[in-house]
Design a protein around this nucleic acid. Structure first.
Lengths: 139, 139
DNA sequence: CTGTGTGCAAAGCATTTGCAAAATA
DNA sequence: TATTTTGCAAATGCTTTGCACACAG
């Protein structure tokens, strides 16, 4: 029994085809789609699902921590099917967002405690640069 | 002659009272106000200035690098009168945003190059936790 | 069968835009 | 005086909401 089934049962949330579709789609991609992009991607297989439903599904998935919300600074949100804390990088040219794998910055929370009087609990680290395709374009 | 005068002259931009007011206000505060908050703060001294003008002033100030735009993940932007790259922290309880001084993460750009094929140029690091006031409230 | 979730359309914010009038250089 | 910028109102883009109907549990 997979993650979403267990968690939705625990929280007494209904396991609808729409919610499953949004969740599965985010699991299936390493892109970090916006709500709109998810809506469009699911349109062919779920032609009757509305954009509002995508937003509502995302909201509940975020609330139960099955999905994570990103804000790279674009004026909209993107979503990530991986919920562990990991850094992201955005291409300043084509705007795509990738995960950075193999390095974690959770340790920074400790480091920062000496420089602030906050209780530091989490962090979000975003890098910006040029992806390999865009690098080559400019040559 | 101050920063904004020199830079606006160089870029042939007009030095209007509204633009100066927005810039000076951001220099004067360590809060990281939204456009709306700047508008309200300047309302008493500039009662005729419109919100659209605040947005336009912020846009040009960001373009000429006199001001920096933040996105802590709230669905709106905040602005910072300091333009050097430095980390920020937001209180998860009262939502205020503070600078973290005395520590820099620009070095992370180098570290990350071994884990991605991007040209890494900049980064934004946001921490989240409880500020000293909110910590005490919960006791 | 009960209550939660969906789909639609309308509403709500944050931000941008078009344009005539005002102000800077 | 020639542009650029302002202020207003309307427009846009992303996200949320209200409500009747549909569906999962």
């Amino acid at each position: 029994m997979d993650n979403i089934t267990t968690i939705f049962r625990e929280k007494k949330l209904k396991l609808t085809p729409q919610r499953i579709a949004v969740y599965k789609y985010l699991q299936s991609t390493t892109e970090h789609p916006s709500a709109e992009a998810i809506y469009k991607a699911l349109q062919p297989s779920y032609p009757t699902m509305s954009l509002a439903t995508v937003y509502k599904a995302l909201k509940t998935l975020v609330e139960v921590n099955l999905v994570q919300e990103l804000n790279v600074g674009e004026g909209n949100f993107r979503y990530d099917g991986k919920v562990d804390s990991h850094p992201h990088i955005q291409c300043m040219c084509c705007n795509k967002v990738d995960d950075i794998e193999g390095i974690s910055f959770s340790n920074l929370n400790e480091d920062v405690k000496n420089y602030t009087d906050y209780d530091v609990l989490t962090n979000k680290v975003y890098f910006y640069g040029l992806c390999s395709e865009c690098k080559n374009l400019s040559k």
